[in-house]
Design a protein around this nucleic acid. Structure first.
Lengths: 223, 223
DNA sequence: ACGCAACTGACATAAAGCTGTCAGGAGGGT
DNA sequence: ACCCTCCTGACAGCTTTATGTCAGTTGCGT
């Protein structure tokens, strides 16, 4: 198991909001306690809101949501930057959308403001492993929107392949990894898939509707 | 010299649009030819438009700019995604701007569209080394806009420190590294600085105006 | 005072990544 | 034909990173 994968797993474990001892996490991931402490360091340094209490264990603080602010050229810059990054990383559809949106905004703005935004024209040469697994994102996005079932071929962390029929519900971004939350028809349970481990995703003609117990609202991260 | 730094250097070398032999690049960067070939592999795999011609050398293809497209919910998604990424990575100002902008857009949209966009609510836990060096970005951006001179403390790749007065002109994003293009008053020449190697940046009260030969338009990447 | 569990530092070892060397192959130009 | 250069694979040595072990410290609760 690669280090990155383990960090991701730790977040998943902590996500239930409960108290977890380093020893338990170590046992579960089959590493030494020392390694868990080092991982926690990394997570904290990366901004994950986790806190350790001596004698107790680890817990995540609830995430703080920020109140809305005012309109400004700050936001314009954020937008340009965001579009530049999306144009670099995401799937072709999004890439085009990002580029056209950026151009459209430039076109609408008064010329003086454009000059400002111009300082942000990006020459983008991704070195990216960031792009790994982005190839399926278009399919997944479309299926979530269309409420279309998917046939998924997935490579588990241990390397084995599985095939399943899922109802895609939700995507999340974890800084390094994208996840797809779905109801798995094959296993009759919620599952979270890492997009970068998806080998193949094919949209099926079959649509699905919300059924009690199978909607995103019913999903509980604590397994 | 770290590998990442070398890749970045290679791009700089190729940027002049000329033909370069692997041997020459190898000599200049003091590595073997084999290593250059491996680096080229990496660059190509990362989307850098470089091409090798047997018997000739390496050249960059000119970048293709895409024609503008139409307005749509694609663009909305690109925007949401972009804001999520910016909120993760950029400096505090941009971060807030991105968050508020995303919220503002959500607020303006009809509820049906919001439901779509909702599938993209991001829980963001950056593992980021992406954030390295972002601490100065706010200062740099502000100085570019205000045409304010900067006192820069910069760590060269060999580890030595330099201090200079610069006129910040332009920022670029290279997928892994941000660069700041500036006229260096101290050296009386254009210089490109890597933002992640900037130790300290202090805005000076002194402003600057465009002088012939010192504007961004006068800058020629081929040293 | 005691136990618990988070922490820290130092060190040895194992795994992974990077690089150079060598030995070739392949396409284009002369 | 020949030369130039890109390009590939294999292997050995080096460097970096990751991990485990050990020995200790710190803060909290009982």
């Amino acid at each position: 198991m690669r280090r990155t994968d383990r960090l991701f797993e730790i977040i998943q474990i902590l996500r239930d909001g409960g108290l977890h001892r380093a020893q338990d996490i170590a046992d579960r991931l089959e590493v030494s306690v020392r390694t868990v402490y080092r991982d926690m360091d990394t997570l904290v340094a990366s901004g994950v809101p986790v806190e350790g209490e001596r004698g107790l264990g680890y817990m995540v603080r609830e995430q703080i949501t920020l109140p809305p602010v005012n309109l400004t050229s700050e936001e314009l810059e954020a937008l340009n930057l965001g579009m530049a990054i999306v144009a670099e990383a995401a799937d072709p559809d999004l890439r085009n959308a990002a580029l056209s949106l950026a151009e459209k905004i430039d076109a609408v703005l008064p010329t003086q403001t454009v000059a400002e935004a111009d300082a942000w024209k990006f020459a983008i040469y991704p070195f990216a492993d960031a792009a790994r697994g982005f190839s399926h994102m278009a399919t997944l996005r479309a299926a979530i929107k269309a409420r279309q079932k998917l046939s998924l071929q997935y490579r588990r962390i241990d390397g084995t392949l599985t095939q399943r029929i899922i109802r895609p519900l939700h995507m999340e971004y974890w800084g390094r990894v994208w996840t797809l939350t779905a109801w798995c028809d094959t296993r009759a349970a919620f599952r979270v898939f890492r997009v970068d481990l998806i080998e193949d995703a094919t949209a099926l003609p079959e649509l699905f509707v919300d059924e009690p117990g199978k909607t995103l609202a019913d999903f509980d991260p604590c397994n």
